[in-house]
Amino acid sequence: MLYGIVATAIALLLAALLAQLLRSPALRLGVLDRRRRRAVPLSGGAAVALATCLVAAAGDATGAAPLGTGVGALLAAGACVGALGLAADVWRLRWWIPLAGTAVAAALVVPYEETGVPGGLLAVGWVVGLAAAFRGLDHADGLAGTVGVVTAFGTAACAAAGLMDGIAVLLGVLAAAQAGFLVHNWHPARVALGWCGALFTGFVLASAAVFVRAGHGAGASAGVLFALTAVACADVVLVFLARWPARRPLVCGGPDHLGHRLRRLGLAPRAVTLLLGVGALGGVLAGVCAHTGWASGGVVLWVVAAAAVAVLALVRVPVTPVLPPRQRSSTASPQVSERLRVRSG
């Protein structure tokens, strides 16, 4: 218990410090988020990944909080995924490269002996999908960090209930690192997650959740996993329903996510984050209760219904159409293009 408190405190402070220290190099190198109206350096993702890996690895190496073989491999794979995401941020790799690397890493850590091969393949798809979902949540100031903190603590509670101490410690450290990142990501954001932080966070959360639910029924597990990540899943479904019928690209950035649509309804940026954070907390509480048996599995259906109502309501909110990257660059004004060029060095 004492180590857990100390570890989370260190992870929070370390992530906040690293996010600030890495901000200037990111600005100089042009590692920026160009989807926003202002250039935001992507130093937050590296800070979250480094703080989580260093603190968790230190606890495992000293014996203060052993992670265990499976969890240690999960952390190592997460570090590799984060490194690949950092390469995508720096060199602007095609979107499928980091996602393919995430799929390979997930395939190496999924516990097939408990899930079976078909279940393991579904788990790999789940891990990749959640990693991509966290990349999408990085569109709004504070949103990805808030959802990450809530989801990590909720999944840690599920792990602790199953006496999976290694996973619980790792997720507690990840939640603290996300909280340290939020110090700089709260509106107006000074840093963002980027591919590095989104892939690392989504990979660790999804893989840990798979470990926690391994051995349970497939249907019940799917419901619990959805509840734990309801906001991220709803954002993915919303974007899909908006873009697929109109044959718009599904993988490029665009102003049609949850946060964008809530802003169009008149909500302030911080209000959007708080509202979606409350929604994430409600889903997490339902998922924890269903996992531990404190409530029947039917509580998950309420989360699914609430998410469906929100998605169907928000999909009708008009947004700016999503254009392919080449078309966006060709239609941008010379002044905007010049400002981005100067800011990116």
Rank of each mutant, 00 (worst) to 15 (best):
A9G: 15
A11L: 01
L13R: 12
A15L: 04
L22M: 09
P25W: 04
P25A: 05
A26K: 05
G30W: 00
L32Y: 01
R35C: 00
R37T: 12
V40F: 03
L42G: 00
G63A: 07
A64T: 10
A73P: 02
L84N: 08
L93R: 10
W95M: 10
W96S: 12
L99W: 03
L99A: 14
T102F: 13
P111H: 11
Y112M: 12
G119D: 07
F134K: 04
L137S: 02
T155D: 08
A159M: 03
L163K: 14
A168M: 04
L174P: 02
A176V: 07
A177V: 03
Q178R: 11
G180L: 05
W186F: 11
A189Y: 06
A198D: 09
F200W: 09
G215R: 11
S221V: 06
F226L: 14
T229Q: 14
A232V: 02
V237Q: 06
V239N: 04
A242F: 01
W244P: 02
P245V: 05
R247V: 00
P269L: 10
A271T: 14
C289A: 15
A290R: 06
G293N: 09
S296D: 12
G297M: 07
G297F: 10
G298S: 14
V309A: 15
V309K: 12
V311A: 05
R316T: 11
V319E: 00
T320A: 00
Q327N: 00
R328P: 00
V336P: 03
S337P: 04
S337Y: 07
V342A: 09
